[in-house]
Simulated scan of single mutants.
Amino acid sequence: MRCLTIRQPWATLIALGEKSFETRSWRTAYRGEIAIHAGLKIDKAVCLREPFQSVLARHGFTADNLPAGAIIATGSLINCYEVTAGMAEEGWPYGSEYIFGDYREGRFAWELTGVTPLEDNIPAKGRLGFWEHPVPQRER
């Protein structure tokens, strides 16, 4: 399965369904199943800011107990939008989604759906870009 490494706390926010768009500096034509890998780096300062802190706390997480170095969820990548100046004027993205991403003009918002946390995280070493891992079918 294709995997994408995402720093914490953003990976967990996606796994919990609190974040539906992953923002990147690059466009992707890929559409399909994807595994979310929580990277080893945890931005602890971000975890202490609102709304990050309260959203994570609502699910029992703090900067000290976020998973790292593991595949934590699977879902589908269904679209990739280029961020333009007009999008912000139209009120997109909305709410905490805007705070949880980097929506500067010229970046890309990858839309994720059907994200489901794994019952048991799968330890794995992350990589840049997409990478492959044999995530077992029944783990999803």
Rank of each mutant, 00 (worst) to 15 (best):
G101R: 00
E111Y: 00
R107C: 02
R58A: 11
E90H: 02
L128N: 04
E82A: 09
L118G: 07
C3T: 14
R2T: 02
A29W: 09
F61K: 00
I14M: 06
A45M: 11
G60F: 02
T28V: 09
R27T: 03
G75K: 14
G17H: 04
N121E: 09
N79I: 03
R27P: 03
G129A: 13
F100W: 05
F61V: 03
A88R: 12
E105M: 05
P136G: 10
I71D: 03
A45I: 08
R2N: 13
F21G: 01
W110N: 03
S20F: 00
C47P: 05
G69F: 03
E105A: 04
G101S: 10
Q137S: 09
G106D: 10
R58W: 00
A88E: 13
R24H: 00
Y30R: 04
I34P: 03
T28N: 05
I122P: 07
V135T: 14
L128G: 04
P67Q: 07
R27V: 06
L112Q: 07
D120K: 15
I36T: 04
E139P: 01
D120V: 14
D102H: 05
E139H: 14
R140A: 13
F130A: 11
R31Y: 10
E90C: 01
Y94E: 14
P136A: 09
W92N: 03
T28R: 08
P9Y: 05
R27H: 15
D64G: 13
A11M: 06
N79A: 15
D120Y: 11
E111G: 10
E139K: 12
A109F: 08
H37D: 07
F21E: 06
P123D: 07
E139G: 00
A124T: 11
W10R: 00
I78V: 15
K125I: 14
E89D: 11
E82Y: 07
I71K: 08
W26Y: 12
A29P: 06
I42R: 14
E22N: 14
P134S: 14
L40A: 11
V135Q: 09
A35M: 07
M87A: 13
K19C: 00
A15S: 13
T28F: 05
G60S: 08
L16T: 08
Y103P: 00
I78N: 05
K44F: 01
H37K: 12
L112P: 02
S76T: 07
F130W: 15
D43S: 10
L13M: 05
M1C: 08
L77C: 06
A63M: 04
A70Q: 15
N79S: 12
R2E: 07
Y30S: 12
R24Y: 00
I34N: 06
I122S: 08
D43L: 10
L128Y: 00
G91E: 03
P117D: 02
E119P: 03
E82V: 11
V46E: 11
T5P: 09
L128R: 09
L40K: 14
G75V: 12
E33M: 08
K44N: 08
R31F: 05
H37L: 11
Y94Q: 13
E119H: 13
N65M: 08
E132C: 06
S25T: 11
H37P: 13
E139L: 09
E139A: 15
E132N: 13
H37F: 04
G32P: 06
R127A: 15
P51L: 09
A29V: 10
R104K: 09
R107P: 04
V135F: 01
R140M: 07
R7K: 14
E82F: 06
F61M: 02
A63C: 07
L112M: 12
Q137I: 13
S25C: 04
